[in-house]
Simulated scan of single mutants.
Amino acid sequence: MTTAPTPVPTPAATELSGGAGASGTATPVPRRRTVKLRGGSWLATVPLFAFFAISFGLPAIAIAIGAFTLSSDAETGAGTFTTQNVTDSVQGAYWTSLLSSVKLSALTALIGTVLGLPIAQAVVTSRFRAVREAVLSASGVLANFGGLPLAFAFVATLGNAGEITKLFHLTDHGWSLYSFTGLTIVYLYFLVPLMVLSITPALDGLRVQWREAAHNNRATTLQYWRHVALPILFPSLLGGYVLLFGSAFAAYATAAAMVGATVPLISRSIADALSGNVLVGQGNLALALSLDMIVVAVVVMAVYLPLQRRSARWLS
């Protein structure tokens, strides 16, 4: 009777068997240690923080210091601490211009949000890819079309001697482009496309299963939007509203070319204070008015950020 030879374990077999020794216990295979640089991820953000500090931090500090400084020597630029600039910026005509800017921005942002949402929804649900690309491309162009070209386009069409004004005799019905109402319509020209661009990604994040579940529970389309879609989209809608508000609040060239001083705006008041159209040496007052704009923007962002985190959890 012949005895079969005992097989000799090869290195490959030993590796596959876990490196079992004579005692039957598995010998752990040593793993390579990888050294991770914990500070490496932060190094990539250094250029961003440096750009942010130079572009936003230093100007903000300069505005804050200048707003509380009273220039006493025009040659040396020396000044003393005062709250007079900030006090004057919230009184009289300056306070009126600040309220008018807030009113105009809030109204145009609200209308732009209401009009931009159904347009964006129609684009998202469209079965034609060409329509989606065309609308989004046009929105990207129109959202950045402002300033003097936009003012000239509306003056030529809806001004006192504009083509549409003469064709439909709008002046006989009390129409005036150079008013608060006319400026509102002009602002909507670039705010509605901006809303379409900002809300489209959120609409893409709405899952089809949510609509199907609502329909399976006999919910109508109106009930789906009221109880499911709009509560989820509300933070994104608010974010788009904040974006539109900031864009309208900071707009200057379009209003300056169209209405001038007819409609009081904070941006026009800052320009007048810097150029000395009203009083000479009001540069620090202009900085105080700029500080008021920053405070308004911070308050609006403080409302938006907590809601944006809530929306991100649903749409992620």
Rank of each mutant, 00 (worst) to 15 (best):
D272E: 11
A161N: 15
I65G: 05
A250D: 14
P59W: 02
S72A: 08
G116V: 01
P193G: 02
L115R: 03
T96D: 14
S236R: 01
D172N: 12
A250Y: 03
T6V: 15
A214V: 00
Y178T: 13
N277Y: 09
A251S: 14
R309A: 12
A257W: 08
A219S: 11
I266C: 00
G260N: 10
R207P: 02
T165N: 05
T80N: 05
T45F: 14
L43N: 04
L142Q: 10
A213I: 01
R33F: 10
M293F: 04
V46D: 07
L136D: 05
T221K: 07
T14R: 13
L188E: 03
Y178Q: 12
F49I: 11
G246H: 04
V155D: 10
I185H: 03
T27Y: 01
I54M: 05
R211M: 06
L191A: 05
L203G: 11
P7C: 10
G40Q: 13
V86A: 15
R218D: 13
G112L: 05
I65Q: 11
V135L: 02
T254N: 08
F234Q: 04
R218P: 00
I185N: 01
A248C: 13
L117E: 00
A251Q: 15
F145G: 06
S139Y: 03
L167Q: 13
